[in-house]
Design a binder for these strands. Structure first.
Lengths: 97, 97
DNA sequence: TCGACCTGTGAAAATCCTGTGAAAGCAGGG
DNA sequence: CCCTGCTTTCACAGGATTTTCACAGGTCGA
């Protein structure tokens, strides 16, 4: 069974020892998610951690990058649903699918 | 299937037993890459290993030599993408393509 | 001395990443 | 069902980063 391994200090997220090709933002977002598994995180929290500032009230960047990250994770790990949406609140990262 | 073989102690990189004609820098770079397969390496790391000193902050030597190395590898092994770019970070050597 | 080659640099060209607006899709309440 | 609000995805323009080229200086052997 393929596993996802995240190594922030190596700027890498690996599947079967092979790094995914993520952009900086995508990786930062994934690292942030992975640092708080199973925790429901608001867009505000995610934005603040990844972008390092407060988001505009109508900012949708987090959603867009969640979508991009899902696309790449979904390609490398088709069977797993790693990022769950919590309607009206935010997102949750679930390492075991 | 053609294979790439690297013999640092013989100062050689072989494809099907035939040595590539690489310059010193190109070979050092390839050897450095090959010593850490699948690992994303920053320009700093690569420069430090190959040149033996810290790079100027705006130094692009690594990029230039990656380009030269790719050209020679690409000629000898057309079907393989051995060196991958990780935007904003550095490069990664993937022995199996 | 000459020619062939290697090196590092600057800069132009090519490529990729980012954030945004907007359209399309989905969920839940009534 | 049908609304409404929220989420997902797309396309694009601007910016940032990477790739490639040409060149000047250096080295080495013929």
């Amino acid at each position: 069974m393929a596993a996802l391994e995240i190594r922030p200090e190596e700027h890498a997220a690996l599947v079967d020892g092979r790094p995914l090709s993520l952009t900086m933002r995508e990786l930062q977002l994934l690292v942030t998610f992975a640092s708080r598994p199973q925790r429901i995180m608001t867009r505000d929290e995610l934005y603040t951690e990844v972008w390092g500032s407060r988001p505009r009230s109508d900012d949708r960047s987090v959603d867009v990058y969640v979508s991009r990250l899902r696309a790449k994770l979904g390609e490398a790990l088709p069977e797993m649903r790693l990022i769950h949406t919590h309607n009206g609140i935010g997102y949750r990262f679930s390492p075991d699918g």
